[in-house]
């Protein structure tokens, strides 16, 4: 059976403020809608007293979507980030699309990224691109490559799950990327506080563990690079010719004093970015450290554990897949 045949129509929520950046994102959204046969919702959250104007603008924005087989427009009032998060919480099996704001190249010392604010509040994945990302690669009708960045510090695998689901839906290759730090004295200190693999064999083992959880129906490739995170990640992405990079929310968002922004490590990414927040904050995927792998594999043979994991996998459905029964069962 084709991987596409047992999946439901996904749902894209395009949050817009009618900016030029939102308009420029229309071809990308149209491509995703067609490629995934997705339902599209155009969402605008307006301030008090601006309903009439916002309604007119929403009718005129992305006018062609009126012809799309499954599309609607939603107008909400109130605080922008909270409104978007609230709407997304009502549609848990959806993906939020938020383009970056238009760059002004003027100093904005107190500017806080709305996208990161929304990202901290929503439980649905967010499709976005970074302001410095030019010439976003075209999404092929089927196939292509989906990249997933593993930092080694994550305790959840929601982003791997989403990446695998997207790869399965599009019949694409899944590339697991890992960036090793360059050897320095700081590594000795880091090794005390972090479970992150610091050598290639350990990284390979960690990625193998993760790849084993993805399932046999997705072609997985592992790519490891060494060096500066920003440059090496961009290099790996160019090497694997990925159209989409999937990252964990906590990896994508950088917390700074009184505000948040996107992590500088992603700045040179040539891909579209999908940030995946944790679906259930209280649950971890219990990703084992490399030295605990053997024990987990022994436990995985027990049917009761398989059933338990199957139950967890089903409760954490992706925005893409209707049937998760075969996913993330230990291989």
């Amino acid at each position: 059976m084709s991987p596409m045949s047992h999946t439901a129509n996904p749902h894209l929520i395009f949050a817009t403020n009618f900016s030029e950046a939102c308009h420029a994102a229309i071809p990308m959204v149209a491509q995703w809608v067609d490629s995934l046969q997705a339902k599209l919702t155009l969402l605008h959250v307006h301030g008090r007293g601006a309903q009439a104007q916002a309604s007119r603008a929403l009718d005129s924005f992305f006018a062609e979507s009126a012809h799309y087989p499954h599309s609607d427009r939603q107008l909400l009032s109130g605080a922008t980030a909270a409104g978007i998060a609230e709407f997304c919480s009502q549609h848990p099996q959806s993906m939020l699309v938020m383009p970056p704001s238009v760059r002004t190249y003027l100093p904005r010392p107190f500017h806080s990224s709305l996208r990161t604010e929304v990202l901290r509040q929503v439980t649905t994945p967010m499709l976005t691109m970074l302001p410095d990302t030019y010439a976003v690669p075209e999404l092929p009708k089927t196939g292509g490559r989906v990249a997933c960045w593993i930092t080694g510090d994550e305790t959840r695998l929601d982003h791997v799950r989403e990446a695998a689901s997207l790869a399965r839906q599009r019949d694409a290759e899944l590339h697991l990327l890992f960036v090793l730090p360059e050897v320095s004295e700081g590594l000795m200190l880091e090794a005390l506080y972090s479970e992150r693999p610091l050598a290639e064999p350990a990284a390979m083992q960690r990625l193998d563990d993760i790849a084993a959880r993805v399932g046999d129906d997705v072609r997985v490739r592992i790519q490891i690079g060494t060096g500066d995170t920003q440059r090496t990640l961009a290099k790996l992405l160019r090497q694997c010719r990925a159209q989409t990079l999937v990252v964990d929310r906590d990896t994508a968002v950088r917390k700074r004093l009184l505000r948040t922004s996107f992590a500088s490590a992603l700045r040179e990414s040539p891909c579209l970015l999908i940030c995946v927040p944790p679906r259930f904050k209280q649950q971890n995927d219990l990703l084992p450290p490399p030295n605990a792998r053997q024990a987990l594999e022994e436990k995985a043979q027990r049917p009761s554990l398989v059933v338990a994991r199957r139950a967890i996998a089903q409760s954490r459905r992706s925005w893409l897949a209707a049937d998760w029964s075969s996913d993330f069962v230990p291989a």
Partner: peptide
């Protein structure tokens, strides 16, 4: 509609499906 999408390098098919 198709000419507009062709010039803007936009996918026309979801729109054409509605027409």
């Amino acid at each position: 509609h198709a000419l507009r999408c062709h010039l803007r390098k936009q996918n026309p098919f979801p729109e054409l499906a509605g027409v």
